[in-house]
Design a protein around this nucleic acid. Structure first.
Lengths: 165, 165
DNA sequence: TATTGTTATACTCTATAACTATA
DNA sequence: TATAGTTATAGAGTATAACAATA
């Protein structure tokens, strides 16, 4: 039996394997001038940290994000989740079905729109989310341990200036 | 016949489709406190920008990164590329074969290690890289147009503090 | 006619095991 | 014994087309 169900992806850093003598080759000088490159590398590091910290709850980033949005905005619809989290509807169906089967979310008929379903967390889902959010925050702080509180705040603000409309 | 060979992924933002009246639901307040979430969202936005700007060269981010490292560090080996760019060796084989078949890179026997191959850009590869880097820089600037030059510099520095050893 | 949720499916990306040739 | 490069393949992530029910 395996410990965790999910494939556990630990992002390999540029220098985690034994290297030969002439191993510090560089060559990334230009790439490091691109915010896209830097953001992607940092995101991979932080996601690895997240996976480690939230492993016991068996939640991938997308599952965690869905639960968090539902928890902080009960009654949200599947389509709204898709727009908020950049997930395509056919894929969201699968994700929500999995969370439903785990007893973490509930679906009610939408009050005004007969096509839609309002989503909310079950009591178990609320419990899990509270614990997972605490763990995720701790993991995020560990992943950015070399940043001061002020730097973390600045970084979040600058990143949001890029991806927020 | 399709225009471009590659699947062209334009990241959908949270608000690019026609929405109903009650569409600004929020619910991402907590997620936006996590640097991992912000970095991932910003990276997706910037990668979308990159894909648009570099489309004419038919280079995905990973292809572009490989060419850039080889160009700025000729003689680098496949294994070193894997470590620098966080790509697993079996996948790097495929990527390098594609670039080789396009006539963009060359492989020479390594001077000191009979197992390894030293990589370098062909003249065509050098031409393509020069053009692609210029386009990538422009795309990166467009993607971060709401940031000042000082903010871009700060952002790059803070992101590197997260992912660099 | 447009939108929500859904099924089925294809494609891309990422990961693991195992082999060879050389160090 | 360990490492570089490689093959084959499995698994996860992301994408499109098309449909029924409702607006």
């Amino acid at each position: 039996m395996s410990t965790g169900r999910r494939n556990f992806r630990m992002p390999r850093k540029g220098s985690d394997a034994a290297n030969d003598a002439s191993s510090d080759v560089g060559g990334t000088e230009y790439l490091e001038t691109l915010l896209g490159y830097n953001a992607r590398r940092a995101a991979l590091t932080l996601v690895g940290n997240f996976m480690q910290g939230v492993a016991e709850f068996d939640l991938r980033p997308v599952d965690f994000s869905i639960l968090s949005v539902i928890g902080h905005s009960p009654g949200v619809t599947s389509r709204q989740l898709c727009q908020l989290l950049n997930v395509l509807p056919p894929n969201m169906v699968v994700l929500l079905r999995q969370l439903d089967r785990r007893g973490l979310i509930e679906r009610h008929p939408h009050p005004t729109d007969g096509r839609a379903l309002g989503l909310s967390l079950s009591p178990a889902g609320q419990d899990l989310l509270a614990q997972a959010e605490a763990a995720a925050t701790q993991a995020d702080l560990r992943g950015s341990a070399r940043l001061s509180a002020a730097e973390r705040k600045t970084l979040a603000r600058l990143l949001q200036k890029i991806y927020l409309a």
